[in-house]
Nucleic acid binder design. Sequence first.
DNA 1: AGAAGGCGTTCAGGCGGCGTTCATGCCGGG
DNA 2: CCCGGCATGAACGCCGCCTGAACGCCTTCT
Lengths: 221, 221
Amino acid sequence: MSGPRILVAEDDPELREVVLRGLREEGFDVFGAATAARLLELAERHPPDGVVVDIGLPDADGRDLCQSLRARGVTAPVVFLTARDALPDRLAGFAAGGDDYLTKPFAFAELVARLHALLRRSPPAPAAAADIVVDPVTHAAQRGDRSTPLTPTEYRLLALLVARAGEAVRRRELVQAGWPHGAIAHDNTLDVYIARLRRKLRELESSAELATVHGVGYVFR
Amino acid sequence: MSGPRILVAEDDPELREVVLRGLREEGFDVFGAATAARLLELAERHPPDGVVVDIGLPDADGRDLCQSLRARGVTAPVVFLTARDALPDRLAGFAAGGDDYLTKPFAFAELVARLHALLRRSPPAPAAAADIVVDPVTHAAQRGDRSTPLTPTEYRLLALLVARAGEAVRRRELVQAGWPHGAIAHDNTLDVYIARLRRKLRELESSAELATVHGVGYVFR
DNA sequence: AGAAGGCGTTCAGGCGGCGTTCATGCCGGG
DNA sequence: CCCGGCATGAACGCCGCCTGAACGCCTTCT
C-alpha cells in the first residue's frame, strides 16, 4: 500500500503471478500486465519506482517497451527478464536503456536484491501537481525557486494529497496516512494540519488550493 | 584521462591488467590495486565514479571493502567480480551495499555495459559544495585559503554530508558512516559531532550551514 | 615511566520545534 | 433557522535537538 511501486510486464500467467505475489510479500506495491500496451497504460496511471519486463512479450519486444517508457518520461529503473542469455541480447538490453538483466530461470531472491540495489540509487521521484512539488529528499514543498520546509506529518499528508491530485481523499485515509502508528483522539487535529498546509501554500503564492469536500474529505487542485 | 574514474581491486595480476587496459580503451580513467588496503588509499586520493571489486582479495573480503568505502563517504556504484556464483554469495554482496555482481568467467563487454548502466544513474559526487572543500589527503576542511583540521570521525561525517549536499541525510546513515565498526550507545554523540562541525564551519566563516531536518537528519547547504 | 595532548564519549541543562488540544467563529445543508 | 461539520488562531507540554563541559582512553613525546 505504501511501498515502492513496481510494474511487471510478463505474458506467462503463472510466472507473472509468482512474481507479483512475491514482490507483494516483500512490501512492494505491484501491478501486473500481460502486454506492452497494457503496461504503458499502467505507467500512465501509476508512475512506477521500478519496472520488471519480460523480453518476449506478445505485442512488442521488451526493449522497445523500455524505450517507449523512457520516451514518455519514465525514469524508473528497468530490469529485463529473459530466457535468452546470449551476450548480444544482454548488450542490446542495456543499450535500450535497461538497468539490469536477469536470465531465466532466476532465483526470486536475486530479483528482489537487484531491485533493492537499483531503488536505493533512484529515490522516488518527487510528487508534483499544479505548480507545487513535494520533494521526498528535502521534505519540503517548493514552487519554482521558492521552498518551504514541511514537518514529518505535514509531509505525509501533502504527499498523499498531491499524489492523488484532483481526486477527493477521504478524511479516514488522510488520518491513516498522517498517523501510521496509532489513531489520533480528536479529528480536529487533521483540520489543524490542513489549515497549516493551506497557509504554507499561500506563502508560496501557489495557484493550488486544498478545497474541502463537505462530509468527505479534501482535494488538492 | 578525462572519462569517469574507475578503481579496480583485483589480486590476479593478469586479469587486473586485462580489465585495466580494456576499461582504459573504453575511455575510462582507471586505477588498479591488488589489495583492499591499497584500494582504500586510492579512493582517498582519487574519489571514484565507479569501483570494480574482486570478492576474494588477499587482505580482506570484497564485501568488507565495499562497506569500508561506503563508510568513508564513497557513494560510487560498486561491481563485484567473483568465481563463486552461489546465490547466498550474491545476496551478501548486495546486502553489503554493492550495485552489481558478475560471475567469472565474464564477458568484458558485459562489464562495460553494466558499468555504463550504473554510471548513468550515479552523477559524480562532489567533494566540494558551497564554498567548502573537504580534502581527503589532509583530512581538513578548507574555504579559500583558510583551513581547519578534522578528526577522523568529523571527516567521515562531513565527507558524507558534502558528498550529498542539498539532500537530507538520515541520522541512521550518518551513524553508519561515522561509526563503521559498531553502533554507538547514545544518539547524542552524533549531535555532539554535528555541533563541532558547525563550530568549525563558523570558524571558517563559511556561508554553508548544517541545517537540521527535524525527525529526519541533517542537510549541508 | 611519567607527562601531555588529542580524540571519542557521556552528562546536564536549556531551548525550540512539533503535535495536540481548546475556544471561538464560520459555512453549508437539511 | 438551527445544527453539525469545518476553519483557524492561540496556547501548552513533550520530546528531540543543541552545546558547553568534563572524563577516560590511547598515543606520543620527553
